[in-house]
Write a protein that binds this DNA or RNA. Structure first.
Lengths: 187, 187
DNA sequence: TTGAACTTTCAGAATTTTCTGAAAGAATAA
DNA sequence: TTATTCTTTCAGAAAATTCTGAAAGTTCAA
């Protein structure tokens, strides 16, 4: 594999963005490389292409492994290990969501719940609890929602995505549908 | 305002999480403080409560201002400026999404589009372009989708959120609905 | 068991990010 | 105008993160 200008710009950009998605520049670059390479790459080749140390490659691959974003390939008669990105682009996005949820949402929700259980000691804490409850409910909704999206089959998800701004229309329609099915229930 | 243990744990946790959402620890803490304080706070008070320098508070507030997450309040007969979190929790989440989209998605989409326009020079680049196109389409879908969610009215959004895992059901239903309305069109 | 070819680990170096505090700037009152 | 009370800026300090490369670990063939 060779770093043509096209591939280089993709890899570097992914490096910059990577840090936003919860991993560092090098990890982003390694992953970008593996995603657009048809052939699995070995650790030395990755280090050479990106101009980073062998140790750094090792740590990056370990990190990507913990995110389940790469898999190790063993080639016939090769002692070296080769690495490949894992799953489809959809799977990749799902993994990133999943991982972020575990690292960011879950601990936050747990803390907020704890605070909600506490006895408010004064006026200020009563107000604080009110706000914290709002935040908790919002985060919980978002979490449940993304989880339910993740459990949809890929082609259903695709349909949903393609709907785009049609979501509003679907919702109106769903409203009438729901109120017909359950006329007694009010939102 | 005083930092009781309850409020302190909330503020510190938000500080840690803040960096995940695109701003640093101090900015997260300042924002957390403003969110759970019923009264607007002045810059000195914020600095004292968090134990950070006056200059740092100023920079943090500037950052939050650029995100449109805080607003300045002028009190009768006070020379100092007071700060308050702006809008509802929903608004806050929207602002964060919006800002992240601008900073992360838009530049990436633009780069990917550029690469897609390039002429592939060899087999490797042909494969790379294929993958890049997949990523582009996925990101574009997600972007359009979140934008359409953002343009929904808060109460519609709420309904949608409350649907949770009902999304699957709605989708099935939508399928039949769509195929009845547009029987000629195939996905 | 040895040696070759690889991988992993981790202390300290390099780099990047964040924070401080002094100085400069702005608004207002007298 | 000057004094007072606030805010902002930014160079350099401090802290946090990331990276390197040598050493230790692993695997396997002979």
């Amino acid at each position: 594999m060779q770093l043509t200008p096209m591939i280089e710009s993709f890899v570097y950009h992914f490096g910059e963005m990577g840090s936003r998605w919860g991993f560092n520049r090098t990890v982003g670059q390694i992953y970008a490389l593996l995603v657009i390479s048809e052939e699995p790459l070995c650790a030395n080749e990755i280090g050479d292409l990106l101009g980073i140390s062998r140790g750094n490659v090792s740590m990056g691959l370990k990190e990507l492994g913990s995110w389940q974003l790469v898999q190790v390939i063993h080639k016939q008669g090769e002692r070296r290990e080769f690495y490949q990105s894992r799953g489809s682009i959809w799977d990749m996005a799902n993994r990133v969501f999943e991982e972020r949820r575990k690292r960011e949402m879950d601990p936050t929700l747990s803390l907020l719940r704890d605070i909600m259980m506490d006895e408010a000691a004064n006026q200020e804490e009563i107000y604080a609890q009110k706000r914290i409850t709002e935040i908790h409910d919002l985060l919980e909704n978002i979490t449940e929602w993304t989880q339910s999206l993740q459990s949809l089959s890929p082609d259903k998800l695709n349909t949903l995505m393609k709907l785009g701004s049609g979501v509003g229309k679907v919702l109106e329609f769903t409203d009438t549908f729901l109120s017909k099915k359950e006329p007694a229930k009010k939102t």
